[in-house]
Design a binder for these strands. Structure first.
Length: 878
RNA sequence: GCGGACGUGGCGGAAUGGUAGACGCAAGGGACUUAAAAUCCCUUGGGAGUAAUCCCGUCUGGGUUCGAGUCCCAGCGUCCGCACCA
């Protein structure tokens, strides 16, 4: 193809993209070898749930990951960039119920469709490592690890109050309940008591918390969210003696947890959770209390109700004795706001310094005693009425603590009560509490990884022998009845006990799908291995993931589970490190305007035409011309119908345009607003680059590098290398929007340089232009790889850009002989001064003072001060 | 309630304490064209001036500094996370 014929020819993305994808494929250049000697780089995007179609969020996520992968490859790294499918989960079962398709069929059909979509994006993925978590070849290893964890004491079966999703008819972990609703179904969750399998993530609470500080390439926001979720609080466990004449049975004491032992002398009451054993015992003798507790439990089923419920209490008549004064008797209430599963399920109430306690005493007329006095307030006139004081100050009304700081008082109380004993045990001990609960993994669903244990009446819980793994899901299940199809299966659950050979039952619960995604990154390092979940050499070579990219919505769930799971795998010998993800990047969402017709129905953007600009934008229905209301910009969602199908985008503009636009408009960690205009702009730029490269391809350059470069040639070279330096830095830091701006600027400058040439350029300029063209192509290659290949070929190269190294920077070209410094007078820019790069402060000062603008401003006087910041700025203080 | 982030043109957004508004979008004007599309050129924070140039300007009010969008204090607003956690 000649340069002239290219000039008027538009770049045909559809044709070119298919052609280059085929070329990459044929050469297998994205298949990663495990024995490659180059330094490794593992880049991973969160693998998708195979819902059937990719959405714009996927396009953005995978475009970013692909830029990183291609860049690191060009930088000479052995890059691992795999893809797989988070393939178990409820939607497959819902499809089975709604459409009578088997979950397996539905899932694998979706995988085929989505894989095709991802491939059309031109992602540099190693598909030879593809895994699906619903494949027995994958979950076999998960079952093996479950058994290893069980043997290592990391798994527990216990009765517990669980979050029950009435729509999905299954249990949810705390992390999976958002605002009192199931994270997937959106149904209001209620509480049930069931026997469940748990991973003992709370054993690692402290370690998971401490190690957050080592994750220096994670967003601060995610680290903070995890810290808060783990929710460490340090305090004192205190045993209060009970007045035996008031205690219901033989209970002699009540244990409470407090983080404020300093306020013990402000105590006014004790409160028990309605589920507390002492409350239960007391209720046995007091029907009214029993009724109160029943009322609390009714109210307390849904989380929403808890949040709005009024504080209510019931005086049990039991009296607790103050630990520092046996004559001081505190009433013991049952109160609806005390949680059984935090601390001991009981508190002492200090109303003056805790808002909840204050609300409570104000309702029941128990009064309050302030014991911490704010600085610069007279202790004698300090009273609390409606607002509790939780600030700093000195102790008052607290006998031997008076005058101490809060911290000092806490220590003093702890020391005294630790020394005191009752029944050979100290009255108090220091304790650390965490908000983090164990991870309940039992799900009463079919489409998940079977939990490999057998229940035997004689032997109890018996692990499935390793040789019998995997426990494969049966295919012949029905979804006609609500509940767990595995439980309804006629034969599957009936097995012989591996120990006594008697009749036994399989566990019919399956694992939470978050288990599946807690180790897939490790499996990618050797997905072919059949004998074990991981090959230690390979997994220790590749992990941790150097750059993990995904949505911030996984800040707690998936990312915390994976951190725990990696620790558990280490303990059981499957990996050699604690932290799975060294670098984490959380990308923003793709958002779009919403549209509604007169009747208030949501309208999909594809059916809407938007016209006008600057405040007089209006939208109409393409079909009827009916006016449509433009609503707020929101996350693309099916319910608001503000989605754009990536396939449509790629069909009309090509994958490169879709990728470029997704990377261009907003910083990658913020939301990007999808707009047709923005996409068109990206499409125009693709054509512009194509024309520009066509022009450069028409420049005849000498094969050998000229010995000398003219000023014009040098300017072109400097522009190119400046762009190279900037883009390299920005890609490495994942600042894709700045990369895009740099590339625009570079292309603009190159266009200008070409436009200014009237005759055939001199050999040195021609060489510089060709060099700049080569650099430009390789700079936009990670973002628009197909266009880059086409351009690279047009420039006469026989190689693939995908196999090229990143351009080599000539740092000398970044250094200018002279620099132009802004000159400020009293902090305001008034002039420029051009000086040699290495000019000393005195020389710069002299040059500045000689400027007309400076002379005018000084009006003959000498300046008070001249500040010269070399390479930066000069400020004259008049 | 607790914790965190953010606040810059018509819009998305640039700016190691050092020339505010890079780059893109939108808009306006012009060229080419029979016309349209495509493309190219110019203008585009506000104000004054023929112009050189000057004044104002990064949510509001203070402060630190030769110099503040950036740092500190107070307030207003938006977004996010957690939330009877003792």
């Amino acid at each position: 193809m000649t340069a002239d014929s290219q000039k008027n020819e538009r770049y045909n993305a559809r044709e070119a993209e298919r052609r280059w994808q085929k070329a990459w494929d044929e050469r297998g250049i994205y298949a990663t070898k495990n024995d490659d000697p180059r330094p490794k780089y593992y880049v991973l995007e969160m693998f998708p749930y195979p819902s059937g179609r990719i959405h714009m969020g996927h396009v953005r996520n995978y475009a970013m990951g692909d830029v990183v992968a291609r860049f690191q490859r060009a930088m000479g790294k052995n890059v691992l960039h795999p893809m797989g499918w988070d393939a178990f989960g409820m939607p497959a079962e819902n499809a089975a119920i709604d459409r009578k398709v088997h979950p397996k069929t539905w899932t694998y059909d979706n995988i085929v469709a989505m894989k095709k979509q991802l491939q059309s994006m031109g992602l540099s993925l190693d598909w030879s490592r593809e895994i699906a978590t619903c494949d027995p070849a994958y979950y076999k290893h998960q079952q093996k690890m479950f058994l290893d964890f069980l043997a290592a004491g990391l798994v527990e079966r216990k009765q517990s109050k669980v979050n029950w999703d009435p729509v999905d008819q299954t249990v949810l972990a705390n992390e999976q309940v958002i605002d009192g609703r199931g994270w997937r179904s959106g149904a209001v969750v209620d509480q049930r008591t069931l026997t469940q399998w748990f991973f003992k993530i709370s054993d690692y609470a402290e370690d998971l918390l401490q190690a957050i500080d080592t994750l220096d390439r994670w967003p601060g926001k995610v680290r903070l969210m995890q810290k808060n979720w783990i929710g460490k609080s340090e305090g004192l466990l205190v045993r209060f003696a009970l007045d035996p004449t008031t205690a219901p049975n033989k209970e002699s004491e009540l244990e409470i947890f407090t983080t404020r032992p300093d306020t013990l002398f402000g105590a006014r009451f004790m409160a028990l959770s309605p589920d507390h054993p002492l409350a239960t015992a007391a209720a046995a003798k007091d029907p009214k209390l029993a009724a109160f507790i029943a009322e609390c439990k009714k109210l307390g089923t849904a989380q929403e109700a808890i949040e709005t419920a009024e504080k209510m209490g019931y005086d049990t008549g039991i009296k607790a004795l103050h630990p520092f004064d046996a004559d001081w008797k505190l009433p013991v209430y049952v109160a609806n706001f005390i949680l059984m599963d935090y601390g001991t399920g009981a508190i002492f109430g200090c109303p003056a310094h805790d808002q909840r306690d204050l609300d409570f005493v104000n309702k029941y007329g128990l009064g309050n005693t302030p014991v911490v006095c704010p600085p610069e307030v007279d202790p004698n006139s300090f009273i609390i009425t409606d607002v509790a004081y939780d600030g700093d100050g000195r102790m008052i009304n607290s006998r031997f603590l008076d005058g101490m700081t809060i911290e000092h008082a806490k220590q003093d109380v702890a020391r005294r009560l630790e020394k005191e004993t009752r029944g050979n045990c100290p009255v108090a001990q220091r304790q650390v509490n965490y908000r983090l609960r164990d991870w309940g993994i039992s799900r009463q669903r079919y489409w998940g990884c079977p939990i490999p244990v057998i229940h035997c009446d004689k032997c109890g819980i018996v692990p499935v022998p390793q040789n019998d793994l995997p426990v494969v899901l049966p295919d012949d299940v029905t979804f006609e009845r609500p509940g767990n199809p595995l439980d309804h299966h006629p034969t599957w659950k009936n097995v012989k006990c591996p120990q006594c050979s008697g009749a036994a039952r399989r566990e019919t619960d399956t694992m939470d799908t978050f288990v599946d995604s807690s180790w897939y990154f490790a499996r990618f390092t050797d997905p072919w291995l059949t004998s074990a979940p991981t090959d230690r050499e390979m997994v220790d070579e590749w992990l941790p993931v150097d750059q993990y990219i995904g949505g911030v919505e996984h800040a707690i769930l998936h990312l915390l589970y994976s951190r725990f799971f990696t620790r558990a795998m280490r303990k059981t010998g499957h990996v050699g490190m604690d932290e799975p993800f060294a670098g984490l990047f959380t990308q923003g969402m793709v958002v779009h305007e919403t549209y509604r017709d007169n009747a208030g129905n949501w309208i999909v953007p594809a059916e809407v035409k938007v016209e006008g600009g600057e405040g007089h934008r209006r939208a109409t229905l393409i079909a009827t011309g009916e006016q449509v209301e433009i609503g707020p910009i929101e996350k693309m969602s099916k319910s608001k119908k503000n989605t754009v199908d990536p396939d449509d985008l790629m069909d009309s503009y090509g994958a490169d345009v879709a990728r470029w636009f997704m990377l261009s408009d907003s910083p990658p960690d913020r939301d990007v607003i999808w707009s047709e205009e923005g996409v068109q702009g990206a499409g125009r730029f693709v054509q512009r680059l194509w024309r520009l490269i066509g022009e450069i391809a028409g420049v005849k350059a000498p094969a050998a590098r000229p010995a000398h470069f003219s000023d014009a040639a040098l300017t072109v070279r400097k522009t190119a290398h400046r762009a190279l330096a900037n883009v390299s830095e920005d890609v490495a830091k994942l600042r894709f929007n700045r990369c895009v701006a740099q590339i625009y600027e570079f292309a603009n400058a190159l266009s200008d340089a070409l436009g200014g040439i009237e005759q055939a350029p001199s050999p040195d300029l021609a060489f510089a232009l060709r060099e700049a063209g080569d650099i430009l192509v390789r700079l936009f290659y990670p973002m628009m790889p197909h266009l880059a290949e086409e351009c690279w070929s047009a420039l006469g190269h026989q190689t693939l850009v995908a196999a090229e190294a990143w351009p080599r920077l000539e740092p000398d070209l970044l250094v200018e002989a002279t620099i132009t410094l802004p000159v400020q007078i009293n902090g305001k820019k008034r002039a420029d001064v051009t000086v040699p790069r290495d000019a000393g402060k005195e020389a710069i000062e002299a040059a500045v003072l000689a400027l007309d603008a400076v002379k005018r401003a000084l009006d003959g006087k000498s300046p008070k001060k001249v500040i010269v910041v070399p390479q930066r700025i000069v400020n004259v203080v008049a």
